[in-house]
Simulated scan of single mutants.
Amino acid sequence: MPEEGLAWSAKNQLLSYEEMLRLVTILAGLGIDKVRLTGGEPFVRKDLVYFMRELKAIKGIKQLSITTNGTAPVETIAQMKALGIHAVNLSLDSLNPERFARITRRNEFDKVWSYFEELMNQGLRTKINAVVMEEHNLEDILPMVALTEKHSVSVRFIEEMPFNGGSKGYQKIKWNYEKILHHILNKHPQALRLDDHSSSTSYNYKVPGYAGSFGVIPAYSRAICATCDRIRITPKGELKTCLYQNGGFSFRDYMRAGATDKDLQAKFREHFGRRAKNGFEAEQNKEQSASFESMATIGG
């Protein structure tokens, strides 16, 4: 997180649950069948379990997943299991409490670790998302892989991306997915490449005999753009067909101006039809002066 913090948005700038449910219902009619809630931290919203239940009830939605930072009460895990949540992604960039506190500016590692342990106890399908940052957590890469020996967890190492809200000058990364993978395979040369599904955003591996797996996500290198089939709607209702694009069409404003469901459906089709072919094209289309927006405002 930026040391100076973030400017918080007024409540009326954010989509309501009713507005989100309306958009997902329209998207389900267009063939979208998987939904993931991300943050920030989704559980800071009141009545999130109610909202998840309503999402699950939408015709055509087959999978509902969530990304969390693990600071929610552990009781939410049993609630998600009862709802039939497909998977939980846990954002965790370090297994060392001091490094964790420096990265997150929260001294809550024990709380997050307890959340992870309860996910394992409850048997929820779990992934750990770890952003590899040269200045902060290289020492955590191999311990994260070791975590997969006893735990049925998928650890995903993500290349650092330039979404820092302009809070620092961004340089090209040294620890790209190839270097991360080389570092791991030096320790575990016996690791086997897994068969990834056609739209996977990660290259996945498993150490023989280990309960879990690990993978690398080339988020900065963008080597997975050709098969990416994801879209994102920000908390303020902006549609992003690529993380690297500048801004996005405001479905919040369009809805609040009186757009019908047919209008919304047509607008989605319009934007899907001119999606950038990859992240490099999307970045080239950005305004020259535009800095990258913080991931905390886009949705992690």
Rank of each mutant, 00 (worst) to 15 (best):
E3S: 14
E3F: 14
L6M: 13
W8I: 15
A10L: 11
N12M: 13
E18C: 10
E19P: 06
R22Q: 15
V24M: 04
A28N: 13
G29V: 03
G31N: 07
K34F: 11
T38H: 03
E41P: 04
V44E: 01
I61V: 07
Q63K: 09
S65M: 09
N69A: 09
T71Y: 07
I77A: 02
L83Q: 04
H86F: 11
H86Q: 07
A87G: 04
N89Y: 05
L90Q: 05
S91T: 14
E98Y: 04
R99F: 10
F100C: 00
R105C: 00
F109P: 01
F109M: 04
D110M: 06
V112N: 12
V112L: 13
F116N: 02
E117S: 06
L119K: 04
Q122Y: 02
Q122F: 01
V132E: 01
H136S: 11
E139N: 00
D140C: 10
A146K: 06
V153S: 08
V155G: 08
E160C: 09
S167W: 07
K168Y: 11
K168R: 12
G169Q: 10
Y170G: 04
K174Y: 11
E178A: 14
K187R: 09
H188Q: 10
Q190M: 11
L192Q: 15
R193Q: 13
S199G: 08
T201C: 02
T201H: 01
Y203S: 13
Y203F: 12
N204P: 06
K206N: 15
A211R: 14
A211E: 12
G212R: 05
F214C: 13
A223P: 06
I224K: 05
T234H: 04
G237W: 05
K240M: 11
Y244E: 08
Y244A: 11
N246H: 08
S250V: 09
M255Q: 10
G258Q: 06
G258T: 09
A259D: 00
K277L: 01
A282N: 10
Q284G: 12
S289M: 02
S289H: 08
F292C: 07
S294V: 07
I298V: 13
G299V: 04
G300I: 07
